[in-house]
Nucleic acid binder design. Structure first.
Length: 272
DNA sequence: AAAAGGTGCAACCGCGACCTG
DNA sequence: TCAGGTCGCGGTTGCACCTTT
């Protein structure tokens, strides 16, 4: 009895010794120094031998996600965002697999990007981020904008038959190797509506976007969306669509063109 | 100026796969 | 073959910081 009590308290003491929460500069230095001298691997023994009062798991995570020299810090570039969107549409939440295709980026960072930026937009639109409609929205609305902001050239794309490449090829063929504003580039493409500032999205009935005959509830979104003038076309087509209006921004000439990163909110900015 | 609410991200947790003796 | 240890992945949480009221 006493022995088991002693054992329990001993275990608790050991657990109490382990630090949790944010890493201090000293801990970081200790971990870097230890790995520099001894290399990675065997995280549990590393944690013990290094003198860090952390679990092996914690050390591994800190090293791989933050301290490792080849880990990139800072915002994702448009090219990286494009790749994430494309690879996620292929593989879903296989973050580590996606991260393998983005040198210097960690699965954690990509996962956070997806949850904080992409899923936020899905919530905003009241669309399930795993739904087909949202994937289509990304492909037809966000991808062209990312391409405009500096997406990869076709030769550098790792997804040769991807939607984004198809879109880019479309844009390239129409712009004859020079970037042109989307409304021009899209004039002959069936994913865009006749309204130069609008894009037609495939519409699926399970979405929550219908209310009072409109696809978007104006009371809840700042998305402008369904254009009643298109209602006839909408109802007459099997491949139903709905319409978003692009934000009133001069995408080619404004200051954003110089940014290496811009946030998703800008891309998904909708007119009230 | 301060409180409340929202956001982003580092870190933790649980679990399954893999390794090793 | 099997059991215990370790690793890696994906989901979740906690908190600092920012924005709004």
């Amino acid at each position: 009895m006493r022995a088991s009590k002693n054992m329990a308290s001993s275990c608790n003491e050991k657990l109490d010794e382990l630090r949790r929460g944010p890493w201090t500069l000293d801990e970081d230095n200790l971990l870097i120094h230890y790995i520099t001298c001894h290399g990675e691997g065997r995280w549990n023994s590393l944690a013990k031998s290094s003198g860090l009062k952390r679990t092996g798991k914690s050390c591994r995570l800190r090293w791989l996600n933050y301290l490792k020299p080849d880990v990139k810090h800072g915002n994702l570039t448009p090219q990286e965002q494009l790749l994430i969107l494309e690879l996620h549409s292929k593989w879903g939440n296989r973050w580590s697999k996606i991260a393998q295709n983005l040198p210097g980026r960690t699965d954690n960072e990509i996962k956070n990007y997806w949850r904080t930026k992409v899923q936020k937009q899905a919530r905003h639109l009241k669309i399930d981020s795993n739904s087909k409609i949202f994937v289509e929205a990304l492909r037809h609305f966000l991808v062209p904008r990312l391409l405009e902001k500096g997406g990869p050239s076709p030769s550098s794309s790792s997804t040769s038959t991807s939607t984004m490449e198809a879109i880019q090829n479309n844009l390239n063929s129409q712009s004859q190797d020079k970037q042109i504003p989307m409304e021009k580039a899209s004039s002959n493409s069936n994913i865009y509506s006749s309204n130069p500032k609008s894009i037609m999205f495939p519409y699926t009935p399970e979405t929550s976007l219908q209310s009072n005959g409109y696809i978007v509830d104006y009371n809840n979104f700042d998305v402008v969306s369904f254009n009643p003038l298109n209602a006839q076309e909408f109802h007459s087509n099997d491949a139903s669509t709905f319409e978003f209006e692009m934000a009133e921004v001069d995408w080619m000439n404004n200051d954003l063109a110089d940014d290496t990163f811009w946030n998703m909110d800008e891309l998904w900015q909708f007119k009230k």
